[in-house]
Design a protein around this nucleic acid. Structure first.
Lengths: 329, 329
DNA sequence: GCTTGCAATGTAAACGTTTACACATGCGAG
DNA sequence: CTCGCATGTGTAAACGTTTACATTGCAAGC
């Protein structure tokens, strides 16, 4: 594999000159530049990024640290991030944390060790708590989760508001016993629960049971929790879940009992997935601008990498309430 | 940030010795080792992986190059790969190709440039065609796609057989006009089509229309293709799709026409997703051992990285036909 | 014609490791 | 008592770049 020295010799110049043409530095005669580029082409030379990184202390890799690779929300975000940074010559390294602070710590260490250019992070609650100014040595943007103790770029949706309004909508249908199922590993789940409770409170309704469990909510958790709810002496007339994985579990539980939606139980959830509209009846959902979130985060990150001293900003993107039929509409 | 030299000085030894203890080389007195480790701990020293990589020419990053980050099949594979290699100290870099050979080429270049340890690849047909012995300088395992022109580890399912048997099943229900929708960007789609056609041929049935289009099949493509099929003067009595994205599109098309499944059209697809069992009626599917595929591929890759001269193997994993009700059962 | 200054290029140090080689020490075998 | 060998440790080169600094040549200003 050709090295810069080979190119230099073949072109009859020094390595410094080769480097200069390859990094588009000034002060090199056009004819020399041309010659060098020809040799580069002829030899199929490609700069060794590892050496570049070591010497110049800058890499072209960014990390995306998320809590669940199997959550459609994060998949769509990943896609957006990937699309956006690739166009700028960066690559993305994906780290899955399973909402596990230890795994997350490992991933963050990795960034340091590999000299990663920057990171897009959906931090666990524990990590947020231990964040301090010193933690942020590396360009970082936080997504999906709320963080107040450090200065950092942040892109989110207004979870409280979104949960509040979908709950209001359910209340509007006349349901008074409403159950909520939220993941408690993240601030996201907590915020949504807060919006949910707030809406109920306004109408002097008590949450039939304040269902909030499981650090890392998956389909199974939705299923068992919904089962528990549906077997109460006074089961809920409506259920709200905070993500699509939980929603799938709840649907499963409802189906098993041959309950009709919305007549026996109404249902609504966060996240518009491929299949939400294909359910019978189609699901009423809070649609998050997932692609937007990923893209915005990626753009903010690249900007920060290029100018670490720029001011921090928090971007709140709008959600959209999609009314279909599972809520009673 | 502490460097190895700092550790060496603080411990009163040379950098060579520090390196030796950190890489578990022999010939270092236990007491020295202990002392060094204490200093490492005290200084919070972490080796710079970039420098390690440059000097020793070996990294701890593997790449996963897939065609569609949003396809549940690849998501599950990613998860498995991630789980598996993380336990062995590797990290994964995710590259999305959108079934686009150019993007794929860029990704493969990246591996060279970044000195990636190995790669798990689902290659496009074009790339497969241009594969040659020389292409494989880097440890590689191919998944999901068939490749014959080079020696390489390969983990797959028997697509022809799987498509054959699900088609047979549909035929068994008495349908004679059966349509198939396959993605043609990959050998996977082609193989499935072949199994499909073979089964029909055995029963002297002509595919109502041999629907095979779109290099990079997504929900939309399933929708438009199904629409076309369903509007034929003699529409199919049954439809088979080769992945879950296409399936979602087909479902959408069927729903729009208020057709009943399976009475008006029967339906079956590859890939058991979260929602397949939640459909009304639940979907009959060919379930691929996605997690297994990812895990096996990762294990093979690590083994090859550790021993590049080991013999190549092809692993064929079994699929499972899950009969639910959309086929007429 | 001599200085000044800038453009073009080369030389070599530096990035943070690993490792080949050299060296010192101690111990057992002859 | 010497030789040989294994063990423990240090010195410095090497990995492939970028870049600070030095050097050269040439044009312009006086």
């Amino acid at each position: 594999m050709a090295k810069i020295r080979d190119v230099a010799e073949a072109a009859g110049v020094s390595t410094a000159t080769v480097s200069r043409v390859l990094t588009n530095k000034p002060h090199v005669r056009p004819e020399v530049k041309k010659k060098v580029l020809e040799v580069v082409e002829a030899l199929g030379y490609r700069p060794n990024r590892v050496a570049q990184n070591l010497r110049s202390n800058s890499s072209k890799i960014i990390a995306l640290i998320i809590s669940d690779i199997e959550n459609p929300f994060f998949q769509r975000v990943s896609r957006a991030v990937d699309d956006t940074v690739h166009d700028l010559g960066y690559s993305v390294m994906l780290c899955n944390t399973d909402e596990n602070p230890e795994k997350e710590r490992l991933s963050l260490n990795l960034l340091r060790d590999e000299n990663i250019a920057g990171v897009i992070l959906a931090p666990t609650r524990q990590t947020i708590d231990t964040f301090s100014k010193s933690t942020v040595e590396i360009p970082m943007v936080i997504i999906d989760r709320h963080v107040t103790n450090i200065n950092v770029d942040n892109v989110m949706i207004d979870n409280i508001q979104a949960a509040y309004s979908i709950t209001k909508h359910l209340i509007g249908h006349g349901y008074s016993r409403i159950g909520g199922i939220f993941g408690m590993g993240s601030t996201t789940g907590r915020d949504r629960r807060e919006g949910f409770l707030r809406a109920l409170k306004e109408h002097a309704l008590k949450p039939i049971t304040e269902l909030t469990k499981y650090a890392h909510p998956r389909e199974e958790d939705g299923y068992t929790t919904a089962t528990k709810l549906l077997e109460l002496p006074e089961p809920p007339e409506a259920i709200l879940t905070s993500n699509s994985l939980l929603a799938a579990g709840v649907m499963q539980a409802i189906r098993e009992r041959s309950l009709r939606i919305p007549d026996d139980v109404a249902f609504a959830t966060f996240d518009d997935t491929t299949w939400a509209k294909l359910m019978v009846p189609p699901l009423t959902v809070v649609d998050q601008p997932t692609y937007e979130i990923g893209r915005t985060a990626a753009e903010l990150l690249i900007k920060r990498i290029q100018d670490p001293s720029r001011s921090y900003r928090e971007v709140i993107l709008n959600t959209r309430l999609i009314l279909r039929h599972s809520c009673g509409c």
